[in-house]
Design a binder for these strands. Structure first.
Lengths: 216, 216
DNA sequence: GTTGCGATGTATCGGGCCGATACATCGGGG
DNA sequence: CCCCGATGTATCGGCCCGATACATCGCAAC
């Protein structure tokens, strides 16, 4: 799962570990609290061994900090890595439908074809519906056997399931009718910007230095 | 985490692995899909080594199936185990507030004193509020930087957080005013039964054979 | 009747992921 | 000047999961 996420982020731009982690948190933070370094670094090593990414010493652009000294290993995706990413994105196994797996796949939906998007959304819906049915069974059949707190827990879980199914159904409807993911929330007013950022596949240019984010 | 759950269930009645797993699924199913045997059996071994539970060969009561043959190891909690359970129930570390930890603790709230219940509910609320603030930051500050799908994901996550905070607040209010966990759902009509089941601490009697559950 | 299938039941193995921990560097405030 | 917090890389022990491999029982189909 992390493999897919890392490949996806490195496809946008090369990064070093620390940066990568921050991006992971903001893009997938909903499903994973932190993405521990104890996971990240071994995974990076694994991806490197497999040949999906390469390690380039302290890059030349050197935007703001670190004059030049120790490490700061920058990782970059390879051609094989891009292929691997495409494969992982397209194929949907059972692990695609659990919380973490679905979150990662969904986060890259703008780079996924509509057929796959629909397949994943429907698979996820099925998964949640099963969980929902299980909870309904417990609540109707075993109600007397459980204490008030356990029941309240099940009820809350059931509520969350029903809500997520509705959410998925809305997304599926939108997909089928060709619309974008709605964005119905009234608080924000992003004019459906999206900005496809059509970057040419083999783009290895110096990269715009990226608008420095959250640097105070 | 699993340790606490197993100890809690075995405090109600001795069980063998398969049975234990089913109970785990129905009581904690909201937070853990299955509780793999690859986790359960090693954990049981660990608890046994620590002296919290003991292994008793194929019990005499032998309710319906299995005339008598191979295994069916029945596990039983020890006096040390009960002490351990009480300790784990009362103390609340950071791991008490993540999804899994909170679920397990909550499931045993009817055996937890009110002070601890409040401490845990408030800790959990704080945790979710932090996650919520993080999502709000992303949605307001980094909105333009993210694609429509990622935004939708964050929005859905934010919604879930807000909903859970409200749920927790309701529970906290109820705790403070001394009421039971509400049970506001109109579909079920359990008359706040709860049934404290005040079992004497050192109860080692033959146990009522348990009303055979879900055997068709 | 026997054959075979699905539920019950116990157990291990490899691997992903996490929290804790240990380093080292840099910029800035006391 | 010195320490603190952010940045940055890395490892270790341990929990937990999915896959897999067994063996037994009840039952239904053939």
């Amino acid at each position: 799962m992390l493999e897919l996420a890392i490949l996806g982020l490195l496809q946008e731009t090369p990064m070093h570990g620390y940066e990568l982690r921050k991006e992971l948190v903001t893009k997938l933070g909903t499903f994973r609290a932190a993405i521990s370094y104890g996971t990240l670094y071994p995974t990076l090593k694994r991806l490197q061994t497999a040949g999906w990414i390469t390690e380039t010493e302290s890059d030349p652009s050197m935007i703001p900090p670190m004059t030049s000294k120790r490490g700061r290993v920058v990782y970059k995706i390879t051609a094989d890595g891009k292929e691997r990413f495409a494969d992982l994105l397209a194929q949907a196994g059972p692990e695609t439908y659990d919380d973490a797996g679905f979150g990662v796949h969904f986060a890259f939906f703008s780079r996924t074809d509509r057929a796959t998007r629909l397949r994943i959304l429907e698979g996820r819906r099925r998964r949640i519906e099963e969980r929902r049915e299980g909870l309904r069974d417990v609540l109707s059949r075993a109600a007397g056997r459980l204490d008030a707190y356990t029941l309240e827990l099940q009820r809350h879980g059931l509520d969350a399931c029903e809500r997520e199914v509705r959410w998925l159904e809305e997304l599926i409807t939108n997909e089928r009718s060709g619309r974008a993911p709605a964005g119905s929330a009234g608080t924000l007013d992003i004019p459906a910007a999206e900005q496809p950022r059509e970057r040419a596949a083999e783009d290895a240019s110096p990269e715009t230095p990226r608008p420095q984010q959250d640097r105070p």
